[in-house]
Each structure stands twice: as C-alpha cells, then as structure tokens.
C-alpha cells in the first residue's frame, strides 16, 4: 500500500517539471514559427531535440516508479 503511494507520488511529482518545460519549449517554438515561418524546419528539429531532453527527466521519474513497482 505504501509502495503504491510512493510509485504514484514519484511519477506524479516527477511529471510536473518536464510538463512545464515542454509547455514553455513548444510555446516559444510556435511563437518563433509564427514570426518566421520560413525557419519552420530548423525550429521544429531543435524543438523536438529539446523536448526529448525535457522528457528524459520525466523518464527518470518513471524509471524510479517502475523499479519501485516491479522490483
């Protein structure tokens, strides 16, 4: 029971930061595309790379949650 709570807590809290980060990232990228639609391709590639880095932090939390759950 307490492990279940820890699992939910780990992934729940761990997803907040990356969520905010990805939101800011995509928002800024869309702003940039709006200002300069010719650079869409370049902005998109870099945006996806940035999202992958931000997402990785949520993945760390997920790994901790999965280790708690299945080990």
């Amino acid at each position: 029971m307490s492990t279940d709570f820890a699992v939910a807590f780990a992934i729940g809290v761990g997803a907040i930061g990356p969520g905010i980060g990805i939101g800011i990232l995509v928002g800024k990228a869309l702003e940039a595309i709006g200002r300069n639609p010719e650079a869409t391709g370049k902005i998109q590639t870099n945006m996806i790379l940035g999202i992958a880095f931000a997402e990785a932090i949520a993945i760390y939390a997920l790994v901790i949650a999965l280790i708690l759950r299945f080990v």
Partner: peptide, 16 residues
Amino acid sequence: LSFAFRLFGNIFAGEV
C-alpha cells in the same frame, strides 16, 4: 548516468 538512463528509460517505458 544520464546517457544510460535516458536511453534505457525511454525504451523500457515504451515497452511497459
């Protein structure tokens, strides 16, 4: 650590 956990976490999480 970040190299190892990033790749492992993403692919393993995908499997799950």
